[in-house]
Amino acid sequence: MQITRRTAIAAIAALGVTAAPAVAQQYPTKPITAIVPFAAGGPTDVVTRLVTEHMSRTLGQQIVVENIGGAGGSIGMSRAAAAAPDGYTIAVGNMGTQSAAPALYPNLKYDPATSFTQISVVNYTPQTIVSKKTLEPADLKAFLAHLKANSEKMNYGHAGVGSISYVSGLVFNSQFGFKPGLVAYKGTGPALNDLVGGQIDYMVDQSMNVIPQITAGTIKAYAVAHPERIAALPDVPTTKELGVDFIFSAWNAMVAPKGLPKDIQDKLLDALSKAMDDPTIIKRYEDLGSTAPKGADRGPAGLQKLVESEVARITPVLKAAAAK
């Protein structure tokens, strides 16, 4: 019901301003599709639904989320890259699709740095270093020492090649020279389940996924791989304050097909900005252990910089892992 009424109002509004010269001033005149390249219910999907619901209100048009899963998100992003740059198709990719994908999929049909009109980072989710609750080390330093001595007998769980926990694990393990058994799961849920059950030893995963288990004490948290403590885990120290050089954040980013008119890009960014500044959404982000981009990090330039630097950082690690 709601939809038809909104459409009707928008149609009437559109008729009223037919005299306006630029097309973009009328934008949007019909519902916008937001492609999420993952299954519904995952971290990217949840964040997208949170912000697009708010953006719909600002723009006066419904934003319909379309989940197109497959190949670590690269199928959905390929389709987004090929869509018409008219502002009616946008997409929200993540660190995997916008940085790791070129190294993982040689036949990738898009280049994260050049195939899109960047809009903005939507959120960052710092990674948290966690282990099964029975692991002896009491703090991060002891944990790293324990891994140094025993990593070959230990097991790292991840949510499948190309997933965030796979990439962050590779970076973590290669940086410190750990060589654990890599246990692959289909998705974060089963991996986390086996971490809680003590079948695997440790993970480096998005705080969003592990916060409930940490606060309930079913798994142990050693550190958040972030410069500042996160609101949802006030008692968990950061790698920075412990003097360990490992900073790693997952992120989601809103993009549109390449060639999007500047005024439409601005409209979308403005709506997204309003959403990210909304107190309810700030609160939701905090609960998820997530933060919104601020200052220069927000907007197309910040996103472009992030994509380029992440591709440069992740590609060699993934290539080295694939060569093994």
Partner: peptide, 27 residues
Amino acid sequence: TLGIPPNAVMALMIGAMTIHGIVPGPQ
């Protein structure tokens, strides 16, 4: 009891809870 989804539908339920501001988990 755990906040861990055993299948895709349950994963979506967790997503729904999160959107509604409930962080599902053991607590």
